[in-house]
Structures are given as C-alpha cells and as structure tokens.
Design a binder for these strands. Structure first.
Length: 509
RNA sequence: GCUCCGGUAGUAUAGUCCGGUCAAGUAUACCGGCCUUUCGAGUCGGUGACCCGGGUCCGAAUCCCGGCCGGAGCACCA
C-alpha cells in the first residue's frame, strides 16, 4: 500500500485521479510501455496508451519503456523519419521514457526463443498455405506439420534459419488448443519469411529475412523487459489470449493487461491510414494541418500537453469507446491558457470607425493581462485632427454590423461614443464621454479597436483551415512564434509567424 | 456468421465486483444571478441520465434471463 496514489498526490486533492492498478502491490517496480510502429506520427488516438502508461509509472514510481515495434518491413513498413517524430511527440507531451528498445535490433533474441519452443514441441514450422491451414483449423484438426517429430521440426527450423524457405513457403506457429472456441486463437503464426531484398527494412535493410509477428515479438519483449502492466487498446484482447499460451510454454507469468476502448474526437481524422491518405491526396497540408488530431496539429493550434493529459486521466481505462467533444479538451486547455496568455486586440474584417468631436488627445493604457498588471501594458494615443476634431480607428465588421444609430458604446479603455450612422464600409460616431462609469450603468457594449496607423496585418488560421483576415494591434509585432495569446472577444491563438504579417492558429474560444 | 466486450444527462466520468447510505455524485456544455473596462475568467444557483422487457429480493443503476443497440477480434498487420 505504500505506493497508494493518494499519499503521493495529496497536494492535488481536487484533481481527478487514476484508479489504482490491479495487483500493484504484487510487483516491485511497476513497468509499462508504449510500443508504436514507427509508420506514422502520433495522434490523439495514441494518447490513451501513452498518457496512461506513463502516468501510472509516475504514480507508482515505476519504469516507462518506449519500444518501437517495427517488425513488418512489408505491409506496415516503418519509416526512419517517424522514429524521431514519435520521440519528438512524446517529449512534447511530457512523457519521458526510462528505456528505449527497437525490435528490429532484437531479431536474434526472438530466433533463440523460437528455437527453444520448436525443440520442446511447443511450436512448429508449418508449410501449409494459409488456406490449407485455415481449412484444418476451422475443423479443429491438426495440420500435417503439427505432429511431426521434434527432430523433423528442428530440421525444418534449421532450414528456415538458413534461408531454405522463400517468402510464403513456411511459417512458425505456436501451439495452442485446436478446439479453442475462438478459431483465431488456434496455433497462431509467430514468425514468417519476408523477401527483404524486395522489401528492405529501413533500419537493417536486407540483413534478416525472418521476421516475428506481433504476438511473438511483443510477447517475448514484455516478459524480457519486465513489464508488469500492459495498457493497450482492446483490439489486442485476443492477442493476450494467444500470448498466454506462449507464456505457458516458456514458464513465464503473463503481466496484468488492461484493454481500453478506442478514443475519437468529433470531426477529426484519427486513423493513421486516413491521415496518411489525406496528406498524399493533398486534402491536408501536412501532419500538422489543423483539421487533424495529430499531436503536431494540436501543438500548432496551441493545445497544451497538460490539457491532453488531464483529459486522458479523466477518461481513464474503461473498455468503452469514447467520442470526446472538443469542449472536453478545451475546458482543460482554457484553464491553462487563461492564466498564461497575454491579451491583445484583433479586429476581424476591419471596418473604419470615424469619431468626431474629441475634446483632447487620449492615451490608452491596456493591461496585457486583466488579473496580472505586473505583466505590463501596451499604449496607444488617439489624437483629434482637423476642424471636426476627428480620429479614425478600426473595428471589426461584426461589431460594426451590430451597431445602430443613436447607440452608445465604449471603446475599451478609451472613451465612449454615440453612433451616428452605419454603412457597410464605415461607421460614423461622435465622442460621448470618457468615463467608464458613464456606460457601466447602462451596460453598454465594450468593443476592441485599433487606431488607424497602428494596425498589423494578421491572418487567423481556423480549425477548419479557413483563414480569417484582419488587423492585430501594433504591439503584436513584438510577439514570437509559439507565443499563445488571447485576442479579446475572439479567442486564444498560437503565434506561428511574425513577419510582414502576423500568422496565428486559432486554438479555441 | 463465429468468439469476446460494453451500454449512467449533449459530451465525458463516479457508483456496478461486495444489492439498501443513489428519488444517482463530478466535470464540461446550456440557462439565470453576482462580479468584472473581453460576449473571457471567477463565483452562486438551475435544467438535464441509470438501453428495453421480464425475474430474484422487503429492496436492483448494481444480481439472473431475454431482447435491442454499439464496439473489438476472426491476417504469413501492429
């Protein structure tokens, strides 16, 4: 009980916690792993495996292992760039791993254990075609290869090791029960021949032609690496059943396994194949296209890794599929961003506002954060000009459209105006008064403004990849890429480029 | 079709193992008050759910059976 989460997380008493791991006290070091195939970047769908596995090891002071499962050079071919991309995404998420393995470095280990199982009659080299085997297995019958003598099996295994079989000619199977109610369990395939001359592996090229299948490699590694808890998607449930037979043959004890359901989020593509296909067909700009649920895209939009972690912890380990709404993520993100983001004015689709009758020049001092005056201010001067003592400012098209002649409004932190006329392109108004108190009583609308001349061309890339054009205030020229700010009454955005114009990505309201 | 798993408010989650304290808790969304020089944040209050039908029991969200709906697996993929 010494690792009971409550004792460690006392200071976060209000935080939602993970439920305790099954049989946690049975193990000295809680060990989990995240084991991606480096064939794509990571996305929100992977977050459950990553965050839960990582978070539990922090909770129990255990060990989190990163293991690349790159044992299919043919149909799910890994790519070099993704080994790094996966690590980059993991680091961004704040999930540091204690150990790292790559399965394509471990082939000889798997061969050794296969040899042992073959020698002990617990696995066999099967020369049947998949169709022949399937026919037998559905009838709960042994295929001709299964009952060959240990000597013959070992000969076949030696032949396999020495390259005596070409792709498709033989496969190693691990013995289970032929009458298992689920045919998918019966004598599952563990290792096959790949023509790596034709399909070289991105890391080890054509050096090996014998490649393990998932259950062999993952099953062996989970034991060898001391895994105590496997947290993975429920699509692996029958794989657990398969692997337990191998564990029995080898006298190993199977780790605790938790199978969670799929995680989706409304409207975002979260499957590797759809992401990759969409990019290849030009539907998406890249892996960080804001319409995608990749970590790269979330990062670009200003979603904080901590928000993702909280969300995943909230969802927990249930086997149910969950379809999250973006609000579930935004509410966590908003708490972080609201405290940290500086405020600026942005006027979308700018419209000219001409105010006449200014009694003097006005100096506006706008706090960068309403609750944090220590963060400083931006200042703008509005000076009356000409016989009409007029000043021109930019306001958003949306605010302009909502105005009616005779109405009183306040330019935030500046002064109050009375609207005279509104057209599509411009609004005319007269100076009303300076004091905020004057309009507070009548609950006048407060709007954002930018003095003509202090505008900075800005583009906001929305989540649907559309672009909103407008003006940001001149102070935004001092921003840097990756800054996350709030455009007041518009939303939180992440700064992407600060150049001729400002380019930001919209995060959320 | 076969083998598993699951169904609590709009969304997510607690409770289900060991039936009563659950006329169902929490977060978010929504509505309203307060506060506030952002239609933000904060704060207070409110609306809103146990898939359906039987059964067992004094008592069922919780146990049993049936149905319906959803998901996963059934690859020489991971």
């Amino acid at each position: 009980m010494k690792n009971w989460p409550e004792t460690q997380k006392k200071h976060e008493a209000e935080e939602k916690k993970l439920s305790p791991l099954p049989n946690a006290d049975k193990y000295k070091t809680i060990t989990t792993r995240f084991s991606p195939n480096p064939d794509c970047v990571l996305h929100l769908g992977s977050a459950r495996a990553i965050v839960l596995s990582h978070e539990y090891t922090r909770m129990y002071n255990g060990k989190f292992i990163l293991r690349f499962e790159d044992t299919d050079p043919k149909t799910k071919k890994p790519q070099l760039e993704y080994y790094e991309a996966v690590k980059r995404d993991l680091k961004w998420l704040g999930c540091k791993w204690d150990e790292e393995y790559i399965q394509s470095d471990r082939l000889e280990i798997y061969y050794g254990i296969v040899g042992k199982m073959v020698g002990e009659g617990n696995a066999y080299v099967c020369e049947c075609t998949p169709e022949q085997f399937r026919e037998k297995t559905l009838a709960k019958q042994a295929c001709p290869c299964r009952d060959l003598s240990a000597k013959e099996q070992t000969e076949r295994w030696q032949k396999m090791l020495s390259g005596g079989y070409t792709e498709g000619q033989a496969v190693v199977r691990v013995k289970t029960e032929l009458d298992h109610p689920n045919p998918a369990i019966r004598d599952w395939p563990a290792l096959r021949v790949i023509d790596t001359g034709k399909y070289p592996h991105p890391r080890v090229g054509s050096k090996y032609f014998l490649w393990p299948l998932y259950n062999l490699a993952a099953g062996i590694d989970d034991h060898l690496m001391g895994m105590t808890h496997i947290i993975r998607g429920k699509e692996h449930y029958t794989n657990m059943v398969r692997q337990k037979y191998m564990y029995q043959h080898l006298g190993w004890e199977y780790p605790e396994a938790i199978h969670y359901g799929r995680l989706k989020i409304t409207g975002a593509a979260l499957s590797k194949s759809k992401i990759v296909a969409g990019i290849n067909e030009g539907d998406y700009a890249d892996f960080d296209d804001p319409r995608l649920g990749t970590f790269a895209a979330l990062k670009k939009r200003g979603i904080q890794p901590e928000a993702i972690k909280k969300l995943i912890i909230e969802v927990g380990t249930k086997p149910n599929d969950v379809t999250l709404s973006w609000e579930n993520l935004y509410s966590h993100n908003r708490k972080i961003l609201d405290a940290s983001s500086n405020r600026y004015f942005f006027v979308a689709a700018p419209v000219e506002l001409r105010v006449t009758g200014l009694p003097k020049a006005f100096q506006a001092k706008l706090p960068l954060h309403p609750e944090r005056p220590d963060r400083g201010f931006r200042e703008y001067t509005v000076t009356p000009e000409g016989t009409e003592k007029a000043a021109t400012l930019w306001i958003s098209d949306k605010d302009a459209k909502a105005m009616q002649a005779g109405q009183t409004m306040r330019l935030m932190e500046l002064f109050n105006i009375t609207i005279n006329s509104v057209t599509d392109k411009a609004v005319n108004a007269s100076y009303a008064s300076e004091s905020y108190e004057d309009v507070r009583k009548i609950k006048a609308q407060l709007i954002q403004w930018i003095p003509k001349g202090a505008e900075y061309q800005a583009e906001v890339v929305q989540q649907d990849a559309s672009v909103v054009q407008g003006y940001a205030e001149a102070a935004c020229k001092k921003l840097k890429p990756d800054d996350i700010i709030q455009f007041e009454r518009f939303g939180f955005v992440r700064v992407n480029e600060v150049g001729e114009k400002l380019v930001v990505y919209y995060a959320q309201k």
